[in-house]
Design a protein around this nucleic acid. Structure first.
Lengths: 152, 152
DNA sequence: CACAATTTGATTGCGCGCAATATAAATTCA
DNA sequence: TGAATTTATATTGCGCGCAATCAAATTGTG
C-alpha cells in the first residue's frame, strides 16, 4: 500500500453526490421555511397542497405515489391539514378502504397566496429558468434510476 | 384571464427543482438503507463517521459546519454513536464549552467495512463517475447560492 | 478587574420519514 | 360460496431536523 488511506477517495464527503443532494434539500427547505410560514404550511404539507391544486378529490394512495410517501407519513400529515381546515377526509363510498382527500374552500383560497412562492425560490436559486429545468431533468432521471433499483 | 389556472405552471409539481432534489434525497436514502444497516448506521450517522474518518478528534461545531446540522440534531445523534461505542465524547480541557469527538477503535475499524458502500451507490446510480461529478458540482453550486441567500 | 456580549453545547417540542404491524374491505380463485 | 390473498389506510416506535430556550464558558471592553 502506497500511503495510509490512499484508497479512500470514494469515502471522502466532498466526492459524494448523495451528500450534495441531501444538503441541498435542507438548504431548499430553509429557504422555503419563511415563505411557507406565511401560508401556515410545512414543506411536505405544501407538496400535498400542490398535488391537490393540480387535481382535487384524490385518494391518499395517489398522493403517496406522486410524492413517494407512505401512509405512515401521510396519515398524520393529512390529519393536521384537516385540523387546519384546508382539506376534508372522507371514506370513499365505492371502495370503503380508500380515504378521499378534497380541498376545503379555505384550501382552495390558499392557492392565491401560494402563487408568489415559486418566483421567490427562483430568485434565491440565482440562476436561469432554463438552467434550473436542465438540472431538474438530470436529477429526476437519477432519482428514477435509483427507484428502479429499489423496485426489483 | 384566458383559461382557469393558466398561470399556474410555476405551481406545478413537475416543474419544481426543489421537489426533484427532495425526492432524490429520499431515493438515495432508501438505496443506502440496506447497505448501512449492515454497518449499524443511519445515513446521518454515516455522514458523521465520514467526517471523523477524514479527520479524527474534532469539536461538535466543526461536524455541524461540515454537514450543515446544528446541536439539536447532532447532540442526540452523537450520544447514540457513543452508546454504540463507535465514538467518544469528551469536554475539551482548553475550552470547556467544546465537546471533542474522537473515534473509538471500533469506530476506526468500521471504516474497512464502509469501503464497499460508495461503489454500491455508484452502481445503483447507473451512470458514469464523470457524469456524477458534474452533477455534484452543479448541485453544490446551487446549494451554496441558496445558503448564501440565508446568510444575509 | 468587572461585566456585557458572544460562543458552544444541551434540552424540549413538533413534524416528518419510514419500518413493522394491525385492521378492515375488496378481490381472487379453488 | 368461502377461504386465501391483496389492497388501502391506521398505528406505533424510532431517528432525524430544526426552532426556541437555557446554561456555562470565554472573550472583549472600559
Amino acid at each position: 500500500m502506497a500511503r495510509k488511506h490512499s484508497a479512500d477517495l470514494p469515502l471522502r464527503l466532498d466526492n459524494q453526490l448523495c451528500f450534495a443532494v441531501y444538503s441541498t434539500a435542507h438548504a431548499f427547505n430553509r429557504v422555503y421555511k419563511p415563505l411557507l410560514d406565511r401560508l401556515g404550511l410545512t414543506y411536505p404539507q405544501y407538496l400535498v397542497m400542490l398535488v391537490l391544486w393540480e387535481r382535487d378529490g384524490v385518494p391518499v394512495k395517489d398522493i403517496g405515489e406522486r410524492l413517494f410517501l407512505d401512509s405512515g407519513t401521510l396519515t398524520p400529515l393529512l390529519k393536521r391539514l384537516e385540523a387546519a381546515e384546508l382539506i376534508r377526509r372522507t371514506r370513499s363510498t365505492e371502495d370503503e378502504r380508500q380515504v378521499m382527500i378534497a380541498l376545503s374552500p379555505k384550501g382552495e383560497a390558499l392557492r392565491e397566496k401560494a402563487r408568489t412562492v415559486p418566483q421567490a425560490i427562483l430568485a434565491a436559486s440565482a440562476c436561469s429558468v432554463s438552467e434550473l429545468m436542465a438540472m431538474k431533468s438530470e436529477i429526476v432521471a437519477l432519482r428514477d434510476r435509483l427507484n428502479a433499483v429499489l423496485g426489483e
